[in-house]
Computed example of a mutant assay.
Amino acid sequence: MAVFTPIELGEIAPWISQEFTIGEAADIRGIHGGIENSNFFLDTIKDGKKQEYVLTIFERLSAEQLPYYLELMRHLANKGIPVPKPIENKHGEILFSIKGKPAAIVSKLPGLSRMQPEVKHCALVGEMLAKMHLAGKDFPKSQENLRSLGWWQQTIPLVLPHLNTAQKDLLTHELSAQEAFFSSRDYDMLPQGASHCDLFRDNVLFDPKGSSDTSNDQLGGFFDFYFAGTDKWLFDLAVTVNDWCLAENKQDLDPARFDALMQAYQTVRPLTKEEQASWPLMVRAAALRFWVSRLWDFYLPRDAQMLTPHDPTHFERILLSRRTL
């Protein structure tokens, strides 16, 4: 998350009072991190009690695309999956406009991120990811993952001039391999549905329940669904594994974390034989997706307050590692 469109309390407070039933706006603070939207913690006071929300102003997604993400979160929340729930205004709407840009307010989840996940955290994430996939089976809307193969094909030519020869070769060869994979019968047979597509460590919260002992952590929830889409569930799982299950060298898979996450996931939703066979290529696809994205953000950045682009070579190293599986 980041801030591209600044907003002050004095600007937002009258709107909150007039349009919502969540109390009076008391504080608004920009959220550091991420690279897509302008995000703020929004505190309100209602009946003398503080309430916490997250306000997002969308910088790239259009008002036509956004109902998929917001209604998916509402659907999952109503199914008992711990995700932020969009807040309706007095007219029953969940999508608004601020400074000429689409915006939404969602509930704030409890807890904090665990950036050095233990085996237990990986298991909790794997179990809930599988439950989320099954809970989304009857979600009626469908929208493609906007950062999938078509976007890679459009974006790679834009970043190639910035790369050295070895990087160019790796990127073009991997894209060719993924084009063949995505057009294969095995890929077509993979189960699919609503997917988060960006379930990194900083998009998951754990509730410590007032204890400093991480063994007491419970899953607080998944958030930041604005890269979600209708995609292969195996891709969603591969994206998650590539961030949660890293070894100490930050590129290879740690066997203990990997086994914990995969076993917990399959306790809820066992992988099909086609998914098992497709895993090596799909985990490479997940690495390619984020290498391309980080190259794009690094070499073709946008102006923003509080924005720090991620190091693109991180996922270059992960892709090289996954190609050895």
Rank of each mutant, 00 (worst) to 15 (best):
L9I: 10
L158P: 06
T267C: 12
N78V: 12
I35G: 13
Q154M: 12
K90V: 11
G220M: 01
L55P: 05
E24T: 14
H173G: 12
D259S: 15
P86A: 09
I94W: 06
F96T: 02
V106K: 04
V159M: 05
K46I: 13
K137S: 15
P301A: 09
G80Q: 08
I318A: 05
A25E: 06
N37S: 03
P82N: 03
S142T: 15
R114P: 01
F58N: 11
A2F: 08
L190T: 06
M1G: 14
D297G: 06
N216C: 15
G80H: 09
S142C: 13
F235Q: 09
V239A: 05
L261T: 08
S195A: 13
V159L: 04
Y226Q: 10
A177H: 06
H75V: 09
A228L: 00
L146I: 12
N37E: 12
R269Q: 07
D236M: 09
S97W: 04
I81Q: 01
G33Q: 07
A166G: 12
Q178R: 08
L190F: 10
V268I: 15
Q51Y: 13
R257S: 08
D213Q: 02
E88K: 10
G48V: 00
I16Y: 08
E11K: 02
K232P: 07
I31R: 06
V119T: 13
F290V: 12
C197H: 08
E179D: 01
P312G: 02
A286H: 00
Q266M: 05
I94H: 01
V239N: 03
S195E: 11
K232N: 04
A13H: 03
T5P: 09
A130G: 01
A2R: 12
T21E: 14
H75A: 11
F227K: 10
E71N: 13
Q18I: 11
K99Y: 06
H133Q: 10
E316S: 11
W279D: 01
L109T: 06
E93W: 06
A286K: 03
K168N: 15
N164Y: 12
I45L: 13
Y187L: 07
L281G: 03
P309Q: 06
R257F: 02
L158Y: 13
R74M: 14
F227Q: 14
Q153G: 09
A304P: 05
Q167M: 11
H91E: 15
K99M: 12
